[in-house]
Design a protein around this nucleic acid. Structure first.
Lengths: 254, 254
DNA sequence: CGGATTCTTGAGCATATTCAATTGTGGTGG
DNA sequence: CCACCACAATTGAATATGCTCAAGAATCCG
């Protein structure tokens, strides 16, 4: 990982856009290191994953698929606190009690679960696991900072643009037809709205506007084609931060 | 630490309200364990604390005082991502690059700083340090979840009530005159507004309303007297979650 | 193909923002 | 000690942005 305050980091905002590639090799190595300590959970959209194992704290590692981490305060609608993708880590204590926390798969995938004390032990013993964990926490904290800034300061269109950008960077692949990016839409409109602190109606309107302006294009129900990446990036104040964050791995390889 | 999903945790929402007490003993023990590895930084309100040491990542531990962690996306106003109090931990990687991150003391206090690799080493070697760190991350993640829910879903009054509640629980002490709680207001109106994703004008209006309804009372400039804790708690959907989160230490002692 | 769910879209409304004027506070120097 | 300044906080009136509610269209699923 490059150092944070490197005065001139080798980012190329105008050149190739760095899209997330599966880090399956690294996760596979991790799985080997975790050995028999981790329970594998196959996830299916909408089911509820229990945040604790038999009353004790647990650690989760996302292997495949996407999940939403939700919180609901009494009298208000649900808030999607984070969207978890492969490589992300969750400790059940990250969700406040008395807040109706829930972990809900947005698509089918796989999850590894360990009891926290066991995982803590592994963290102390295995430097590779520790490094993975600290990296993951680092990334997730940074992502949350961007998320907080988005829901706190952005207007509706900026929020939506930021969300689409995030999705494109994390799960998108360059489209076969050249200039665009295609990516899955694992979340429903309501879920996206709850993630962005928006009304579902307002969100729908905004996305329609993006579609009619030619930036976006729904091919199928749960799939999107981003026609103009640059135009979308120009709509999101967080574009540079997001590209920097998600392009990190790509940079290391270049 | 109590297990997260203990079916009937021994919380007493209606009985005594658990206010934060200084954990100076635990922090003192930590300081001893950190030994000569940590640099001590005295903070003064408004100064800017560099997030990196000579270009490499750093870890910070708050010993005294309060700090704001800020992020500013181009074209939008600053967002206060978190307010850090004694016992909180920050790794410079938690702040996304390209987001104009800054760490700014809200009051005078003290900060310990280590190079990240050194701290990571200590984490692996010293179980007490590891446990402290994981606890801190746990708490901060949970707090951020509440914060996200607040800026995403709450209306103006709920946001303000939640903020005041958080401050009262984290830094307040029962007032000498009996029923109230007094606490410092380390943040300016603008900073509070940026923390809550509100306009400073709107915030001021809302606080005036709370004051005229008798819940709140400014004694001096940077000090507040919370007259009616229960009334304020009733205004915040996050009240239960916050009390649960900040009352934990108190419970352990009881 | 029908029924349920999700998504879209419009019209009216409410809440928070903007902008500007005013008051209050703290610091500095005469 | 007071006058002065700069800055922070308060408040009002007008505006705008996103929300609510309700109806219709599209999509999914059995």
């Amino acid at each position: 990982m490059t150092s944070r305050a490197n005065p001139k980091s080798a980012r190329r905002p105008s050149a190739g856009i760095p899209f997330g590639e599966p880090k399956s090799d690294r996760l596979a190595a991790l799985q080997a290191a975790l050995g028999a300590h981790a329970a594998t959970i196959r996830t299916r959209r909408g089911q509820n994953v229990a945040l604790a194992v038999e009353g004790s704290e647990a650690a989760f590692i996302v292997h495949a698929g996407a999940l939403t981490l939700n919180v609901t305060m009494p009298g208000t609608s649900r808030q999607v606190v984070a969207i978890l993708f492969p490589g992300d880590v969750l400790r059940s204590g990250f969700v406040p009690r008395e807040a109706e926390g829930s972990l809900v798969p947005a698509s089918s995938g796989e999850l590894w679960r360990l009891r926290w004390p066991v995982f803590a032990e592994l963290l102390a013993k295995d430097p590779a696991i520790a490094s993975f964990y600290h990296e993951a926490i680092n990334r997730q904290m940074a992502r949350r900072a961007i998320h907080v800034a988005a829901i706190g300061q952005f207007d509706c269109q900026q929020k939506v643009a930021t969300f689409l950008l995030e999705l494109a960077l994390r799960t998108g692949t360059p489209s076969s037809s050249g200039s665009g990016v295609v990516f899955d839409m694992p979340l429903s409109r309501t879920e996206i709205a709850d993630y962005l602190g928006l009304n579902a109606d307002t969100l729908s309107r905004t996305m329609s506007r993006l579609r009619s302006s030619g930036v976006l294009n729904h091919t199928e129900r749960n799939r999107a084609l981003l026609r103009d990446f640059r135009a979308l990036a120009a709509l999101s104040p967080a574009a540079r931060a997001l590209i920097d964050l998600h392009g990190e791995r790509q940079l290391a390889a270049s």
